[in-house]
């Protein structure tokens, strides 16, 4: 019996594709944000509000993943920016190879900002590097404040928690301070923005976070 030591990532194939994407984003000056949250937490609504708030000449694009239907690409395509659906046909997450395939031959010019809306899921997308600059977790006030403790992986890997649907706070038994405390117990460095896609509250703060992240990535602030 011979034991051969290996020092490699289990997902090294994915990581190779992610490295290719990272290089592509660096060359095109694109900030790529990977948005992750449970089904119904408001990822698409957040992106709709974000696109609606953008300068119409901004160079922004969205890839959106779902198991079935192109409903989200249709919703997101109404704002004048390129939006493309990735239908995984069963897979509960996006992987880097799906992103490589979807980007190939799609956009006619470079974009400054690429949003990837992951498949609604707090677990599986955590493991897959998509070459993004940052993972962002969306947690809604309609969920439980204990989610960061139940699903620590995604909160650990995210730079930012978007607390969504904050317009519901007066009506639901959700303790926002406890939710933030729980997120920071998992990841002390996680930043938080609170938004409502319905009222527009906090969207400015979210856009400012994106601009700061662009400059932190050494990219031009548009």
């Amino acid at each position: 019996m011979t034991r051969v030591p290996l020092e490699q990532k289990v997902l090294s194939e994915n990581d190779r594709a992610a490295a290719e994407l990272r290089e592509q984003f660096r060359a095109s000056g694109t900030l790529c944000l990977n948005i992750i949250g449970s089904p119904g937490c408001g990822k698409t609504a957040l992106l709709e509000k974000t696109l609606a708030a953008m300068d119409p000449y901004a160079r922004v694009a969205v890839l959106t993943g779902d198991i079935q239907t192109d409903a989200d690409a249709q919703r997101l395509g109404r704002y004048g920016f390129p939006a493309r659906q990735i239908t995984t046909g069963g897979a509960c997450h996006l992987d880097a190879r799906m992103i490589v395939r979807s980007l190939s031959g799609w956009l006619t010019g470079d974009v400054d900002l690429l949003f990837i809306e992951n498949v609604g899921n707090l677990v599986c997308p955590t493991s897959y590097d998509l070459g993004e600059h940052a993972k962002i977790v969306v947690l809604s006030a309609a969920e439980g404040e204990e989610k960061p403790l139940k699903y620590p992986g995604i909160f650990y890997k995210s730079e930012l928690m978007v607390l969504s649907k904050v317009d519901l706070l007066p009506y639901v038994p959700f303790d926002r301070e406890l939710a933030i405390r729980n997120a920071r117990a998992t990841n002390p460095a996680i930043e938080v923005v609170e938004v409502s896609a319905t009222t527009g509250q906090g969207i400015d703060g979210w856009l400012q976070w994106i601009a700061r992240r662009r400059s932190a990535a050494g990219l031009r602030v548009s």
């Binding site: 019996m1 011979t2 034991r3 051969v4 030591p5 290996l6 020092e7 490699q8 990532k9 289990v10 997902l11 955590t126 493991s127 992986g153 650990y156 890997k157």
Partner: peptide, 14 residues
């Protein structure tokens, strides 16, 4: 540790 997901070794029967 943390988010490690690594292959460490394989055992082969020669």
């Amino acid at each position: 540790a943390s988010d490690e997901l690594d292959l460490k070794y394989i055992e082969l029967e020669e």
